[in-house]
């Protein structure tokens, strides 16, 4: 193993019958790195995690995790990793505290240490108010918090997090992400999947974008935005709120690559490579339709823009049979 490479993956594939779920993916993850794995639904993220955690055998390719061979040393790998699955996982007959304690027990954590860690984790993850509540009675968000917190009851060198913040409110989500950052500073390596791109940007050192089983790009969040987020977003609001005519006209405009409306803020969002021609067009349309533009500005390119561009371009390449093999 290269000194600081915790995960080394080369040409790893997984087939389910004729369907290729993961197609010859290759990447390395360094110690204390947070490696983001982003992709649309069904892109192959969870299958990759299942292979790297030894739950699923790969169909082909090679990988080492923490220096151990994926195919022959699965048990040694599992002894040093933690996994928070995308799906719920909980013991239904127990309360939160007992559930954490029992999980620590099966990982052979000494009793006194379990007690100490449970108190610490319950504090960190703000679970005091439901620490005695049966796991079956928890809300989805509370259960998710338990699932993430529980994994820290045992020691590990590498943690796989498969959409760990689904169902969490923004405040708890931020505190979970901050806790993860703290653990990374102490030496933990994290493999992280999410659909919330802001948190990927907040947490990840590098990001791999995967689509239809293939890795499309790997780079830092900043580089991905710079390289693939060339389009700008023009956001504007109408004094009148909404206008279907305006929406229809902008959607069909040649200068607009994407058009949408944020239901929360009520702002229209236009993605374009030519904001200098789109802005006058918005004002022209507003005049013609007797509408008033109450605010308008050009926003910075986000990771989401880069992600969507990457995936959209890849989809086009696949459709045209032009994807590199």
């Amino acid at each position: 193993m290269a000194r600081d490479q915790v995960v080394r993956v080369a040409e790893l594939s997984r087939l389910f019958g004729d369907k290729i779920a993961v197609d010859r993916v290759s990447f390395d993850i360094a110690r204390s790195e947070v490696f983001g794995f982003l992709g649309p639904n069904g892109a192959g993220k969870t299958t990759t995690i299942k292979m790297l955690t030894t739950l699923l055998p790969p169909s082909s390719g090679r990988a080492t995790v923490l220096g151990y061979d994926l195919k022959t040393e699965g048990r040694k790998i599992r002894a040093q990793i933690g996994v928070v699955q995308q799906q719920d996982s909980f013991d239904q007959g127990l309360n939160v505290e007992t559930s954490m304690d029992l999980y620590g027990l099966i990982w052979n954590v000494p009793k006194a240490e379990r007690r100490r860690r449970i108190d610490e984790l319950i504090g960190h993850f703000e679970m005091q108010e439901f620490r005695k509540m049966p796991t079956v009675d928890l809300s989805a968000g509370q259960r998710r918090r338990l699932q993430v917190a529980r994994e820290f009851i045992h020691d590990m060198d590498l943690l796989f997090l498969d959409e760990p913040t689904v169902g969490l409110d923004p405040i708890v989500r931020r505190s979970v992400l901050d806790y993860l950052k703290e653990r990374v500073q102490q030496g933990l390596t994290i493999f992280f999947t999410t659909h919330i791109l802001e948190e990927a940007e907040y947490l990840c050192n590098r990001i791999a974008v995967i689509n239809q089983g293939r890795i499309v790009q790997i780079d830092t969040p900043e580089n991905l935005k710079r390289r693939f987020g060339s389009a700008k977003a023009v956001e504007f609001k109408l004094l009148q709120g909404t206008s279907s005519e305006m929406a229809s006209a902008l959607s069909s405009s040649a200068s607009v690559s994407r058009f949408g409306r944020d239901e929360g803020s009520g702002a229209y969002r236009v993605t374009t490579t030519r904001p200098e021609s789109v802005i006058p067009e918005i004002y022209r349309l507003a005049d013609r339709l007797n509408l008033t533009v109450s605010s308008i500005y050009i926003s910075e390119t986000t990771l989401e823009d880069a992600f969507i561009n990457l995936v959209t371009e890849d989809e086009k390449a696949v459709a045209n049979g032009g994807r590199a093999s």
């Binding site: 599992r78 990793i81 996994v83 699955q85 996982s89 909980f90 013991d91 239904q92 990982w107």
Partner: peptide
């Protein structure tokens, strides 16, 4: 049903 089957198989058990 509760996801513990996979969770345990990704732990230090066979």
């Amino acid at each position: 049903k509760n996801g513990m089957f996979e969770q345990l198989l990704m732990g230090p058990f066979t």
